[in-house]
């Protein structure tokens, strides 16, 4: 009941006022960026850096192999402090922390993006259908959603991931998707109901447009931005979820670098060397914080705009 209200961005402006060429949009975008508070600029930059590093991890010159344990071959120290070759030092099996952070970012981001992608897709479609058609379809979909929501998601997730023999990133994402879509569907439905009540939908109905066409042409495009906004909010939550699973040892399988896994591993030597714990913690915090900050900023922007209308 409160998801859409929480969001405050259930924007259902029936698309832009037509004459927005891409050039105008680009300059407006730059203008918007300039008006960001410095902290938001910082967060935005951080996220861009993070995404780029994760994307190009394989071709970054000089980046160590994240799984290479030098001390086995006698060319690396465990729990080493920052040095010229290992900028952030090494962990307790002498792997390069920076490399593991960057490859860990990959896991986090892929997990979060895929979760959001599934959530947005399902949420838009099911939510639109549910909110526009109402009646029996709506009741059934929502009953299902309610049950899914009262099911303890983390328990379910633990359960499935534990029982699955192989826990690759893909499997993890797929399993998470099962528990992700209900909330998106709620947001989508709430928006679809508002959109359905608007004049341009009544008008379309009045001139005899088919329901399928209204759904595709009027409802879906207007539901999408709200659900997408919710997706942005969910990025932070999904990144936390992934790191938590990895911390519990239920994320991607062990040698693969992940932030939660790095933190879990560093626990044993906390009193000897805190740095292997601090680096991934700080990275995780900064990333989650950046998403939250950016979302809050966007929310304030849309609030200002809707207040101005």
């Amino acid at each position: 009941m409160s998801e859409s209200a929480d969001l405050g961005v259930v924007g259902n402006q029936p698309t832009d006022d037509g004459g927005s060429e891409s050039a105008g949009r680009a300059t407006r975008f730059v203008g918007v960026l300039k008006r960001m508070p410095w902290l938001t600029k910082f967060c935005f930059t951080w996220l861009i850096l993070l995404v780029s590093a994760a994307t190009f991890a394989d071709v970054i010159p000089g980046l160590h192999d994240p799984d290479y344990q030098g001390f086995i071959f006698g060319d690396g120290k465990t729990n080493d402090g920052p040095s010229a070759s290992h900028w952030l030092g090494t962990d307790n099996v002498s792997r390069d922390i920076l490399a593991r952070l960057i490859y860990g970012a990959r896991v986090s981001l892929i997990f979060a993006f895929s979760g959001v992608a599934v959530g947005v897709t399902v949420g838009c479609i099911l939510g639109s259908i549910s909110g526009f058609l109402r009646g029996f379809v709506d009741t059934s979909i929502m009953a299902f959603v309610d049950v899914m929501l009262s099911f303890p998601a983390l328990v379910g997730l633990l359960f499935v991931t534990t029982l699955l023999e192989a826990r690759g990133l893909f499997v993890l994402c797929a399993v998470t998707a099962i528990f992700i879509w209900p909330r998106f569907t709620r947001v989508g439905r709430a928006t679809a109901i508002t959109v359905s009540g608007q004049d341009f939908v009544s008008a379309a109905k009045a001139i005899g447009t088919s329901r399928r066409r209204i759904l595709l042409r009027e409802i879906l495009p207007n539901v999408f931005p709200a659900v997408l906004a919710f997706g942005l909010v969910s990025m932070a939550i999904l990144i936390i979820l992934e790191s938590t699973l990895s911390f519990l040892g239920l994320g991607v399988e062990i040698p693969t670098a992940s932030w939660g896994g790095m933190i879990a591993q560093s626990r044993q030597d906390l009193l000897i060397n805190v740095w292997p714990a601090i680096w991934p913690s700080v990275t995780l915090l900064m990333t989650v914080y950046s998403f939250n900050n950016l979302v809050d900023w966007l929310r304030a922007q849309t609030a200002v705009r809707s207040a101005a209308v």
């Binding site: 932070a236 936390i240 790191s243 938590t244 911390f247 939660g260 933190i263 626990r267 906390l270 009193l271 805190v274 714990a277 913690s281 995780l284 915090l285 989650v288 914080y289 939250n292 900050n293 809050d296």
Partner: peptide
Amino acid sequence: AQLGLSMPVFVTGLILIYIFAL
């Protein structure tokens, strides 16, 4: 509040353990 919102429980827990227990 924004910062608190961004703290995963296990990170908060580890920080508290490090400071108040260890």
